[in-house]
């Protein structure tokens, strides 16, 4: 089981969190014509790296905030966490 340090609540069990996917994906700019390929890439294409990965997690049974987590996908070691609106 992972222990994730929520930037708001402190160290908590993974049971309280829900995984939210790749934290580096940027949505195409609003109110701008987006080519199909760019939209397809945004919606469907994800990297599956072995090693450090920046992820979004939702502290769904805690403070209900989204956070960013830098985690090693091979060892599950967590290096850093930050608020969703901060750079990690």
């Amino acid at each position: 089981m992972l222990h994730i340090k929520c930037p708001h609540c402190g160290l908590r069990s993974q049971n309280e969190f829900s995984y939210g996917g790749d934290g580096t994906v940027k949505r195409p700019e609003l109110n701008k014509e987006v080519p199909d390929k760019e939209w397809d890439t945004f919606v469907y294409l994800r990297k599956s790296p072995r090693g450090k990965h920046i992820e979004l997690w939702h502290h769904i049974s805690g403070c209900r905030q989204w956070i960013k987590v830098e985690r090693d996908t091979a060892t599950h070691e967590i290096f850093k966490t930050s608020k969703a609106n901060e750079d990690i």
Binding site: M1, C9, L11, N15, E16, I60, G62
Partner: peptide, 21 residues
């Protein structure tokens, strides 16, 4: 799963108990 060694008077936490928030 919370570490209850850290809890003291006038502290509140959101967590789960057997899957119930």
């Amino acid at each position: 799963p919370f570490n209850f060694n850290e809890i003291e008077k006038n502290v509140c936490i959101n967590s789960v108990f057997n899957g119930i928030t």
